[in-house]
Structure formats: structure tokens, C-alpha cells
Design a protein around this nucleic acid. Structure first.
Lengths: 186, 186
DNA sequence: TGAAAAAGTCAACAGGTGTTGGCATATGCT
DNA sequence: AGCATATGCCAACACCTGTTGACTTTTTCA
């Protein structure tokens, strides 16, 4: 345990940063507020992370941890995917951080693209799904839209859906986006 | 023409405000920048609109102008609705303003709720569609998610869809959200 | 134990923000 | 033309932001 104390405050800063970025977005989340939450001096944030941008980069690291889809029967693809995404969304607030910041912050938007195009596309490709990029994009529209309405805008009817209801509604949509022949293809 | 000059600068301010709010979000869009775009003094913005908040309220006024759906055959509901929404989205940048700001600004979020729940629900009710609020919420997830990915995050595959392709993909989804019996109902 | 290094505190900076009041100019009416 | 009024500009305010450097305290380890 070479430098235990420092590790603990590093983690405290990161946790506070995620909380604030996720609740208020990039610009309204101030270093001073984050430092106050972590019960330390604002200068420490700079010492440990260099700048607000770098702190954000550290707080917004995310892996969607896509499951492999080879063995999933076609008609259950959507259900499996939606369940995975919703669970991922609820267990890791980093996605909420990204969603709240990506709208006004270019670095966050770029990371969002990495996750939803860069991580979904190869998984679909490996599952022998044609036009994987288009399908990743379509699924992103439904998945991000659901998260936006449920966690950020808090539209009443969307908030009140149970997880199972949400899966029952969105699953077939995602299945169709994965399996239906592209309308632009011959 | 009682006060023509003032009306023109009022309009110039509002146009510049919409531009900036839509491009940068609420906090990054500064009164100084808006004033510069409108080629006037920042103080004029205050004189005409009182405060940044009130200027925003004026710039974010929006009516989705829902068409009546009585006479639309069930299986074409989605196509009609998606086409209307996409067109509305492209002709009036106010929606982009709302989307960019609603994520960090409570007033904008409230207006978004008004539009997507408050304006869609009664239309569905008048068209004798059951559970109109839930269906409005579901359609909001798909519509807002599409706009988010296409206009804000600019996910490559989503940006590259033509309008017709987008309608072909999203139409059936929306139709299903409008016509399928609710999975929670008995 | 004692010195070197790490961890933390404090005050200040330079720049940007919304907002205000005083002053100049142009406009419109009689 | 002459004046009241609407319109516009300027400078300043109080505040908040990210960031920095000098300083003190604590920890580490030879």
C-alpha cells in the first residue's frame, strides 16, 4: 500500500465528479462544487487530474460490455439486447453522465459515438448481421431516446414503465432493426 | 407601423438567440454572443427581454401542430406521424433548441414534456386510441432519440439516412406503438 | 529520529458572466 | 422646427469560473 491516502481521495473526486456531471452537465458542474462534495480543496482536483477536461475524460470512461450474439435466436435478439442495455444503464451512472454532457460537449459526443457505433457495430458484424453500422445507428436512436425520456426528461409515462414492460415494448423494435432487410437495399 | 425599428431588432435578437441556444445549449450561449450576432449592444437584449431566462422562454416557444388522425388507416399511422415530425423538425429549428437545452435546463425540459406528452396525448385520445399517454411516451422515445442521434450527436449512419429511409425504418415502429395492445393490459 | 516527499490549504489571478444606470442619438408627432 | 420619447451605446458592477503558486502539515522510510 504505497500511497493509500491519495488513492482514496482520487476515488472520492471521481465519484463526486460523476455525480455532478451526471446531474448538471459539463458546464454547470463546477470544480469547486465537485471538490466540496469530495470534502477537499479545489486545488487538489487540479493536482490529481490536471484540468477539468481531463477530469471529465476520466469520469466518462465507459464500456458497454456487449454480449456475443451468435447463439441468440433471431426473434429474441431485441429482448436480449434491450435487457442488457437497460441493466447496464441502471448499474453504471457513467452512461447518464455521457447523455447529460454529450449534448453540449464535443468530447462527450465523440465518446458517445465510440460507444454506440464503435462498440455495437463490430458485435453485429461478428454475429453475421448485414449492414451492421446502419443497424447500430437505428438501435442507438431507440436506446438513447428511451434513456433520454426516462432518466433526463423524466416523461411521466416513460418513467412509470417497469423494466419488463419496457423490454416488451422496445424488444420487438430492436429485433426488427436487426433482422429486417434494409429498405434501401435492392 | 407604430414602432417598426424596434420590432426588427427584437426579431433579430430572437433569431440570433435561437441560433446560439440551438448550437451551444443554454449555458454556453452567452447574451454577449447573441447580441454580437444581432449586431447590437448586450444591454438591448436586457431592455427587450428582461433577462436571459425570459429571452430563452421566448426563443423556445413551440407548437408541434399535430395533424388529426381520425381518417388515417391504422397501418399508415406511423408513416404519417413520422413524416410530419421529421418535416416539423427540419423547418423549425426551435425543436433543436429545445433538445439542446432540455438536458441541462429545467424550464426547457418542462416545455419538452408539454410538447411530447401534452400535445401528442390529446391527439391520440381524439383518434380513439387507448392508453394515449403511454403511446405518446413511447413515440417520444423513438422520435427524440432519432433527432438526438441525427442532429446533435451526428452518428454517421443516422445522419446518412435519407428522409424516406428514415420513414421506412421508423414508421412501422411508431405504428406498432400506436396499435399494439399494451403488454401490461390483461 | 530526522529529512525528503507527498498531501493538503490558502489566497489570489485573469478572464468571462448576467445585469444595471447614465448618457448620447435618432425618431415621430404636433 | 422643437420637443418628448423611443432606441441605442458605453462603462461599470458584482459575481463566478478554471487555474496557479507559495505555504503548511502529514506521511513515508532509511
Amino acid at each position: 500500500m504505497a500511497e493509500k491516502k491519495s488513492d482514496r481521495t482520487r476515488a472520492a473526486i471521481l465519484a463526486a465528479a460523476r455525480e455532478r456531471f451526471g446531474a448538471e452537465g459539463y458546464e454547470r458542474a463546477t470544480i469547486r462544487a465537485i471538490a466540496a462534495d469530495a470534502a477537499i480543496d479545489p486545488a487538489m482536483v487540479m493536482r490529481y487530474y490536471g484540468s477539468k477536461e481531463k477530469l471529465f475524460a476520466a469520469a466518462a470512461e465507459f464500456d458497454v460490455r456487449m454480449p456475443e450474439l451468435h447463439d441468440v435466436p433471431k426473434e429474441r435478439l431485441g429482448e436480449v439486447l434491450v435487457r442488457h442495455l437497460v441493466e447496464r444503464w441502471e448499474e453504471d451512472d457513467t452512461l447518464r453522465v455521457l447523455l447529460r454532457t454529450a449534448v453540449t460537449n464535443e468530447a462527450a459526443a465523440e465518446r458517445m459515438r465510440q460507444v454506440f457505433i464503435g462498440q455495437l457495430t463490430p458485435t453485429f458484424q461478428r454475429a453475421a448481421i448485414d449492414q451492421p453500422a446502419v443497424r447500430a445507428g437505428l438501435i442507438a436512436t431507440q436506446a438513447l431516446g428511451f434513456a433520454l425520456c426516462r432518466y433526463i426528461l423524466e416523461l411521466r409515462p416513460v418513467v412509470e414503465l417497469t423494466t419488463d414492460e419496457a423490454i416488451a415494448w422496445l424488444g420487438p423494435t430492436v429485433t426488427r432493426y436487426l433482422t429486417e432487410p434494409s429498405p434501401s437495399a435492392p
